[in-house]
Amino acid sequence: MEKKTRREFLKEAGTAALGLGWALPLAAAGCAPRGHNIAGSQRQWAMVVDLEKIQDPAVREAAQKACARTHNIPHIPDPQEEIQWIRVESFEHVFEDQIHGAMPPHELERSVLVLCNHCTNPPCVRVCPTQATWKRESDGIVMMDMHRCIGCRYCMAACPYGSRSFNWRDPRPFIETDAEGKFLSDFPTRTRGVVEKCNFCAERLRDGLEPACVEAVREVPGGEGALVFGDLTDPHSEVSHILRETPSRARRVTLGTGPNVFYIG
């Protein structure tokens, strides 16, 4: 009698337990939106890209070149291994969810500069198993710790913008050097097997400088204001002012990631 009762109990317990198979992962999923490194930021750096002004190839090249030289970004010829922090794509690819059949070809083919959006709710940070990428509370930059990254590339699967690049091989032989064989900057190069992306020039901000691309486009005639950088939480910043006064757009906003790179013009 007693034996039967226990078996009955086991059966019921087991059946109930089977249904609980989802519980552990779901509890984990529940942690996600309020994970410790996705807290609200005190400030939020943001960028406004003026599409009119970056139609000049000289402006785009200045931005890309400054970025590559500042961060020792390699130039790997194979596009499928290329490291890109700031790249040029056509309007129809960048704003795929905002185009329609009646748009003229010259609209669709406009050049757009794309970079990491330093999202308010970054999916890459949510999925990273080692906190090698995290959202910095002090200024909202989505940071990368190259020492911590294990190279699982989960962040690349999670990023809806294709903003991340993986070092498939040792990048050093592909980095520009001067006549003496020295790199153009002492920003650490990366090693094979880690993921990298735009860091909004966190190292320059620390020294009170603007991001390299923002500074570089200003030097180009007609490039003044092509890229504007500032604090979105400060209502008096230039980016806040522009976004108040001018119609703007951002990439794939319906996903809820909260991109902080905006486009006008």
């Binding site: 410790h36 999925v127 198993p129 911590r148 699982c152």
Partner: peptide, 28 residues
């Protein structure tokens, strides 16, 4: 074998991250 930095595999346990499904997969 899929990892870019296999020598750092212990980072997953040294820096446990409950909001990552990869972490939970390792635990499970």
């Amino acid at each position: 074998v899929d990892m870019g930095q296999p020598t750092r595999v212990a980072n997953v346990l040294l820096h446990p991250t409950p909001n990552s499904m990869m972490f939970w997969d390792m635990v499970a």
